[in-house]
Design a protein around this nucleic acid. Structure first.
Length: 294
DNA sequence: ATCGTGACCTGGCTGC
DNA sequence: TGCAGCCAGGTCACGA
């Protein structure tokens, strides 16, 4: 669930409370969330201050500066939330026991805390020095909301792949941050069948996909993300974009555009949702008709 | 190289 | 009510 808009919402919610705080200690309750031994992870974060909170793809990125007694670099704590990960802020006055499935507990110098909770434990956390972060980031595709991400880049990249366009959108090496919900929603708005080969899309369809993908992601960020079950913001509240979904999870319901019935198909081992009337398989839309799908 | 499939882990829902 | 079976937003490794 946590895709780009959810990671962005969490990062924004953590920025003000975390900025300038120092990490007093890290308690690791679920070591399998880490790729290094917990002692090493703990040592890499203790007594370091938070310089920034951002996002790359679906990952929340916390920049930690050098601790008081050490010189050196700004490292980054990269949090991949997997399917059910939550990053929750605890205010100083909240004593409360840790919630179930808490994996990590970061104690901050103002008495507040940051909790990583993950029921399914598909999430991963790592502290990366600058060069390792650069390598990791280079392995991800472009940010779809970046100013430099233009329609021609998307069209060019799509034209080189025979993969079904929905699978293409899910591949983080090709484009960062898109998951199953927003891939399905963008394709529905662009009226493109998710199973069509990426390279078979017309340039017009590529331009449309570029536009609607960005608008879907922006609207979802404005709504605080999509809560279907697990996702919560840093304050523990739900995102409201589920109300705006047109196809995802709406199997059997009417299409908001043509009143046809939304169906679910299996594609690459996972569910895809579409309106068969608005998103016909195998053929392209008439490019002379300059309709503006929304 | 590219693409598709299954595994990872746990909880919630459905249907018998 | 109990329980087996199925499903889930993500990523990774493997084999065709």
């Amino acid at each position: 669930m946590p895709e780009l808009p959810e990671a962005e919402t969490i990062a924004r919610g953590l920025r003000a409370p975390l900025l300038g705080r120092s990490i007093e200690d890290v308690e690791v309750l679920k070591e399998d969330l880490l790729s290094v031994p917990k002692a090493e992870f703990r040592a890499s974060l203790r007594h370091r201050s938070v310089h920034g909170v951002g996002r790359r793809g679906k990952n929340v990125v916390v920049e930690v500066g050098p601790g008081s007694a050490r010189g050196g670099d700004v490292d980054r704590l990269v949090v991949n939330l997997g399917m059910s990960g939550r990053l929750l802020r605890r205010r100083p006055a909240e004593p409360a026991p840790l919630p179930g499935h808490t994996g990590l507990h970061f104690r901050l110098d103002d008495g507040s805390a940051l909790i990583y909770r993950d029921v399914r434990r598909f999430g991963r956390l790592a502290v990366l020095p600058p060069d390792a972060y650069r390598d990791w980031s280079r392995g991800l595709g472009p940010e779809p909301l970046a100013d430099g991400f233009r329609a021609r880049h998307l069209i060019g990249a799509l034209s080189r792949s025979r993969s079904p366009v929905r699978s293409w959108l899910l591949d983080q090496r090709r484009i960062a941050g898109v998951g199953n919900i927003y891939a399905n929603e963008a394709l529905a708005r662009a009226r493109i069948h998710p199973g069509r080969a990426a390279r078979d899309l017309s340039p017009d369809e590529g331009r449309t996909l570029h536009r609607v993908l960005r608008s879907v992601l922006r609207e979802a960020i404005d709504a605080g993300g999509t809560t279907l079950r697990d996702y919560r913001t840093a304050e523990g509240s739900e995102g409201s974009y589920a109300d705006a979904l047109r196809v995802y999870g709406r199997e059997g319901h009417p299409c908001t555009r043509c009143a046809g019935t939304i169906v679910r198909i299996r594609l690459g081992g996972r569910s895809a949702f579409l309106c068969p009337r608005c998103q016909p398989a195998g053929q392209q839309h008439d490019s002379r008709r300059r309709t503006r799908p929304t």
